[in-house]
Design a protein around this nucleic acid. Structure first.
Length: 581
DNA sequence: GCCGTTTTCGGCCCGACTGTTTTCAGTCG
């Protein structure tokens, strides 16, 4: 049982309450509770044990009791009660565009439809010809939505979303240079995965440019074209939202379209508490007069807040921090002095050492760490002792050739075996400048077992960092079940660094765990896990993820100069040797 | 159901767009 599982259950409960027509604010309360649980890094079971559930925002007496039952007996009493009235699976229907709680209720009441396959059958066999409360127009929209359903739900990885947004930019830049386009939404916040692309658009003939864009995407069946909002879904199912605004109003519009929704709600509450109304146009004062803002900075200032960078806008405490002036001074890309997780063609990358040196120098780095796979990872051509020796000599040669330009550190990516041991003896390990240890097998074994493996490996004096710690693959494989409270508590003692892996399908650690680790005093590195020279620029996604985890320059060891970095690694190894060696 | 530095009761973010229920409800972000 994980926080995520409980959050999903509470969300389902919230949706069922909406469908059954309960007090909508009660339904919202369950949704808020779900969000609260998803945002915290601590295991919900330990909060229940400590009796601290009600300290979470949006969780009061009643929901706390439900959660307690769930943790102790694996059931939510309210869910069981509602289940008697309506099948739980009906929440599936809400995923379909144009079906909300009211329409779902109508479908169930009038036709007994409670899942997608029932609905499909009913729609396509003509079982539903007319319904009270659902027009024939809506029915044909539903048919359209269901016939290409699998296309419309997918989320994109951050890099895919960014590349797509550049193509949209190019289109407008080429054909409509007079309009201004600004990227907003979850892409601007740097969220790990992106559902749709949001753009602000302003300037002369924005409407005309958008009509052109709609024609170009070709798919006109699902277009929404209003005065202010244009929505298009392309033939791959990707949704583009455009908000038309003006130069004077673009600050409020950008804030609105960037979100997150939860962040916006908090800001509107703040405006409201002083009698004003915050909308996408600006601030409506008590007397009805509209104040406009051409930048977000001015708007935050009006609300009495320091400027909040988009990456922090999740209502995870940033508003309180902006009020008190305690926002972090976030890390920047230019702070990074080197990439500490790179593979070469000595193992399974396509990049030669010389390629890497050349690119790294041109990226302005001071050093990189070549962390080829260690011998037990056969599929990735892990290095034998002989190969290792030869590779290290090759690194020495490159370092001589590039002296004064870039330094290649002799690194390795070790495999953590089932007992928390790694691939080589200490006599071999001590030759490396930098060792990352990663989990590559046994990812689905039970919580205690994986946790123990990590704790054991962190006690190895030469294991400097843990690579892609949760082992998640975004949109593919969930996080391994690991007790990170125990792991980070131990890491604070062992001085083990935690990687923020920049590869777009990993972005691992996730931000909520970064924040937990930081609370324990853990330090971090950012690595790309590059397997080709083209991967080195992916570091920016690692930086974004670190920013979403509220990290500052001093939290990340690869913002240090080479000498500082070496000293720090040495210091930490000596400390571990004293304790565990 | 939750919440409170004006409140333990009476609120709970805000608006665009659509379709149709000629004054508004439902969906969406």
């Amino acid at each position: 049982m994980t926080n995520e599982e409980l959050a999903k259950k509470l969300e389902t409960l919230s949706e069922l309450l909406e469908i059954t027509g309960e007090n909508p604010f009660k339904a919202k309360a369950y949704l808020k509770a779900a969000q609260s649980i998803r945002a915290i890094p601590e295991d919900i079971r330990s909060l229940v044990r400590k009796g601290e559930l009600e300290a979470l925002p949006g969780i009061g007496k009643s929901i706390s009791q439900q959660i307690q039952k769930y943790v102790e007996e694996g059931r939510l009493p309210l869910l069981e009660e509602i289940q008697k009235k309506i099948p739980i699976e009906i929440v599936e229907l809400l995923k379909i565009p144009h079906i909300g709680p009211k329409t779902a209720k109508i479908l169930f009441d009038q036709f007994g439809i409670s899942n997608i396959s029932d609905l499909k059958e009913a729609l396509f066999t003509g079982k539903i010809k007319e319904a009270r409360g659902i027009s024939s127009k809506t029915l044909s929209k539903l048919r359209a939505a269901l016939s290409n359903k699998e296309l419309s739900y997918e989320r994109m990885l951050l890099n895919e979303a960014e590349e797509l947004s550049y193509r949209i930019r190019e289109f407008f830049g080429k054909y409509h240079p007079e309009v201004n386009l600004m990227i907003a939404g979850s892409l601007r916040r740097g969220k790990e995965t992106v559902g749709d692309l949001d753009f602000l658009i302003f300037g002369a003939d924005s409407g005309k440019a958008l009509s052109h864009f709609i024609k170009r995407t070709g798919n006109t069946s699902s277009v929404v074209e209003g005065e202010e909002i244009t929505r298009v879904i392309d033939d791959k199912g990707v949704q583009f939202d455009f908000l038309i605004t003006t130069e004077e109003k673009k600050g409020a519009a950008l804030l609105h379209l960037t979100g997150s929704k939860e962040h916006n709600i908090r800001l509107r509450q703040i405006a409201k508490s002083s009698g004003n109304r915050l909308t996408h146009e600006g601030i409506f004062l008590k007397n009805g007069k509209l104040l406009t803002f051409s930048s977000e900075e001015e708007l935050y200032e009006f609300l009495g807040l320091h400027y909040i960078p988009p990456e922090l806008r999740e209502d995870w405490g940033e508003i309180e921090a902006a009020k008190n002036g305690t926002l972090p001074k976030l890390l920047c890309s230019k702070d990074i002095k080197g990439d500490l997780h790179i593979h070469s063609d000595w193992s399974d990358s396509s990049a030669s050492l010389e390629d890497l040196a050349y690119i790294a120098e041109h990226m302005g780095y001071e050093y990189i760490s070549v962390t080829d796979h260690a011998k037990r990872l056969m599929v990735a051509r892990g290095l034998t002792l002989e190969q290792l020796k030869a590779r290290n000599e090759a690194i020495d040669e490159i370092n001589e050739k590039y002296a004064g330009k870039i330094v290649l550190l002799k690194g390795i990516e070790l495999n953590i075996d089932k007992d928390g041991q790694v691939d080589y003896e200490e006599s071999v390990l001590k030759e490396f400048d930098f060792c990352i240890a990663s989990l590559h097998w046994g990812l689905s074994s039970d919580r205690d077992k994986i946790t123990e493996r990590l704790i054991k490996v962190m006690q190895n004096p030469y294991v400097d960092a843990i690579g892609h710690p949760t082992t998640r693959l975004l949109l593919k494989r969930p996080e391994a079940d690991i007790d990170f409270e125990r792991v980070f508590e131990e890491a604070a003692k062992t001085g083990t660094l935690f990687e923020i892996n920049s590869f777009p399908d990993r972005l691992d650690l996730p931000p909520r765990l970064i924040r937990l680790a930081k609370r324990y005093g853990v330090k971090f590195i950012i690595g790309t896990d590059s397997h080709s020279v083209s991967h080195l620029p992916l570091i920016k996604y690692g930086v974004t993820t670190a920013r979403r985890g509220w990290l500052e320059k001093s939290d990340i060891l690869n913002t240090f100069s080479l000498n500082e970095l070496k000293d720090e690694i040495k210091k930490r190894r000596i400390e571990r040797m004293k304790r565990y060696g």
